[in-house]
Simulated scan of single mutants.
Amino acid sequence: MQLPPGITEDDLIRQCKNGDIKPLEMLYKRFYGYAMGIGLRYCANRDDALEVVNDGFIKLFNSLNSYDPDKPFKAWLRRIIVNTAIDKNRREKKHLWNDDLELANQISTQATAIEQLNARDILNMLNKLPDLHRVVFNLYEIDGYSHDDIAALLAISASSSRVYLSRGKERLRELITKAESHERRF
Rank of each mutant, 00 (worst) to 15 (best):
D121L: 02
D121F: 11
I122D: 03
L123E: 09
M125L: 07
M125S: 11
L126R: 08
L126D: 14
L126E: 15
K128N: 14
P130L: 02
P130H: 01
P130E: 05
P130W: 00
D131H: 11
D131I: 05
D131Y: 00
H133R: 05
R134K: 07
V136R: 00
V136G: 00
F137R: 04
F137D: 00
F137W: 09
N138E: 11
L139W: 08
I142T: 12
I142Y: 13
I142R: 12
D143F: 13
D143G: 10
D143T: 08
G144A: 06
G144W: 09
Y145M: 05
Y145H: 03
S146L: 05
S146R: 09
S146I: 06
S146H: 06
S146A: 03
D148R: 12
D148P: 09
D148G: 14
D149W: 12
D149N: 13
D149F: 12
D149P: 12
I150A: 10
A151Y: 08
A152G: 02
A152E: 05
L153N: 10
L153K: 08
L153Q: 03
L154E: 06
L154W: 10
A155L: 14
I156T: 01
I156A: 06
I156D: 06
S157T: 14
S157V: 06
A158H: 02
A158T: 09
S159L: 11
S159I: 04
S159N: 09
S161E: 00
R162V: 11
R162T: 10
V163F: 13
Y164G: 03
